[in-house]
Amino acid sequence: MRILRKNTDQMAISETELLALTADMEERHRQTLPKMHAAVAEWVEGEGAAERSRVSRRGFLAGGGIVVVGGALLAACGSSSTKSATMPSGGGSSAPVDVQAGAMAASLENLAVFAYGAGISAATAGKLGTIPPAVVTFATTAKSQHQDHANAWNAIVTGAGYQKVTTTDPALISTVQTDFAQVKDAGGLAKLALTLEDIAAATYLNAIGVLSSKQAISTAATIQPVEMQHAAILNFVLGTYPVPNAFAMTTGARPVTDYSVKK
């Protein structure tokens, strides 16, 4: 990976200070994980246990298709918030909405992990030209946080007796792969990442109006702002005003019931 290090002398102190701040942030981040785990554990003990019992009696889950991918990434999301809040667009699973939403969210987070991972790999292989160090740090940190998000949702999914979601969102993966093939530089990678972050934030905002358990709502509420923070920094990197809206939007939200979670 080619990383620019201009003005090394000028920025030496700055880098040190910033690294110290980053270490402090990492510590704070680690402190938040036990709280999230506690919230998820409570869900598993409560509503998750009830659901495991219910699913066990039922013995099966109705399968369902997925949204057909077509066109650009946002078009592939294709649903209004109203529709997604009330109408499954193809999942058709009989799992509780919180489990379905958790599986959908986990698959979206897996997609983000995949995209950032692919970007980092391509940059390491020198396929994206010179990558500024701030972009490398961004991608590495965002990827790690998306993995944490995926783990949180999978804890809810498996706690209810369903299979861990290890795949990327089936409705978007092929479009992301196609779009990623067109990425030639850091700017292109940032644009693709911004689209994914916007979709994730919109999906969580939409889900907050649909989820039923307070633990699931709380999980979505603690993640949605982080995705929006990722988007703010990406907008800044791309030279776009970083906080473009006074109110977050659900445009591009993935329907919460669009992932066919399996028992």
């Binding site: 920025m11 942030m25 500024p132 961004f138 946080q145 993640i223």
Partner: peptide, 25 residues
């Protein structure tokens, strides 16, 4: 600056804006 001079930004600046994976309360 907007747009920023990416090449001059310190690496740590890339993650300073989102310190936690889960928003705190």
């Amino acid at each position: 600056a907007l747009p920023p001079n990416l090449t001059d930004l310190p690496g740590a600046a890339g993650s300073i804006g989102f310190p936690n994976a889960f928003y705190q309360t």
